[in-house]
Design a protein around this nucleic acid. Sequence first.
DNA 1: TTTATTCTTAAGCTAAAATTAAGAATATAA
DNA 2: TTATATTCTTAATTTTAGCTTAAGAATAAA
Lengths: 220, 220
Amino acid sequence: MHILIVEDELGIVQFLQQGLEEEGYQISTAADGAQGYELSQNEPFDLILLDWMLPKMTGIEVCKAIREKDKITPIIFLTAKDTVQETIEGLKAGANDYIKKPFSFEELVERIKIHFRNQQQDEILTLGSIEINLAQYLVLVNEEEVSLTHREFELLCYLVKNKGKVCTRNQIIEDVWDIHFEYDTGVIDVFMNAIRKKLNLKIEQDYIKTVRGVGYIAND
Amino acid sequence: MHILIVEDELGIVQFLQQGLEEEGYQISTAADGAQGYELSQNEPFDLILLDWMLPKMTGIEVCKAIREKDKITPIIFLTAKDTVQETIEGLKAGANDYIKKPFSFEELVERIKIHFRNQQQDEILTLGSIEINLAQYLVLVNEEEVSLTHREFELLCYLVKNKGKVCTRNQIIEDVWDIHFEYDTGVIDVFMNAIRKKLNLKIEQDYIKTVRGVGYIAND
DNA sequence: TTTATTCTTAAGCTAAAATTAAGAATATAA
DNA sequence: TTATATTCTTAATTTTAGCTTAAGAATAAA
């Protein structure tokens, strides 16, 4: 999650940046309104923290400018302007929240999380640098999309879901192929081969190992 | 827009109800936590205003209970509990905002509006260069109007609303056809075929892909 | 080295999806 | 209401993706 901080007081910027990075967010900063608006147009942010009093463009102006095109990205005002009228002006400009200085950092974090709650509900499995998006039936290897067939996808998911445990050929045939009797063709091998070929992992990325005589195991 | 007020102090309830009705909202009220939770389960509200100190169930308990099933409906705490710790507790329970008494009615209205902003704007859906106007049942492809039948329109909307996620055949039959048992004729295929034919997209505009063995996915 | 296991490849087969057409159901107009 | 047009559904046909098999190559174990 990538957050843009638009604030001119260096002390506050550093305080926010450090705290939010510790929370696991990626942070970009802008020291004046114009630069903040500029940045917001060049790359997509997941949330924007905005001061009111800024050089070149005020926070209100930045907020309105962003909202002309983008109605979605959450914007939170973070400002010493604490009258009701100012709060209302900020919210009317299109902000999603308005927090008055001095504020509690912990409360800020909770208020930030509110906006991410609704977005993060897609289930994602990972195996090393492999990312599996279950909702999209999508596999990313080192950020690159790899297209697997349905069976390949299911087999990979099965191994990843059982990360750290050896999956025997029998278990795989049972659970992935749904065959409940002795079955010993080379199907699994063929599919493992196809998956490995498509994932095209480097030698040091040996996330999927074969356990000779038994089956396979995934591990990051 | 229908708002539920859960608050035991009659004076505040009347004040809120009158003010919000003047703003054009439909209001329901509950005088204790248990009744508030009960109401929230029986009919869908667009937003819930929640006091903290309530008879029978506290606001926190109501909030958590609602959030067990429903992660979406905005919940705003409106309470005299004004410490940082309490605010955080409220937000962590799943609330979307936390307003401290005494509050400005005007600010409350603005904060309520924030949550409706996002809902009301999806009158128009887009998928690449396809534009779907829900209010007019109108579809534009590269600015050109395309006339779809009702079912075709619904199916297309469903895919677009779930943009980025694979829609399985079962989900489609459930949600678009409203059939709740195993049903495996070729209807979906026929309609997908009709939609694709009518949209008449170029090869590079492959916004609607079939996911073999699973279903379909829309993506711009 | 011998033997067993796993990997790789390619060809045939199977099942899923696309297409088409025709009849049933529903909506619209006369 | 009846007549007409539109839309929906079913079913048969064609096409295509991908699953399976089997056989030889490569690799690991004995």
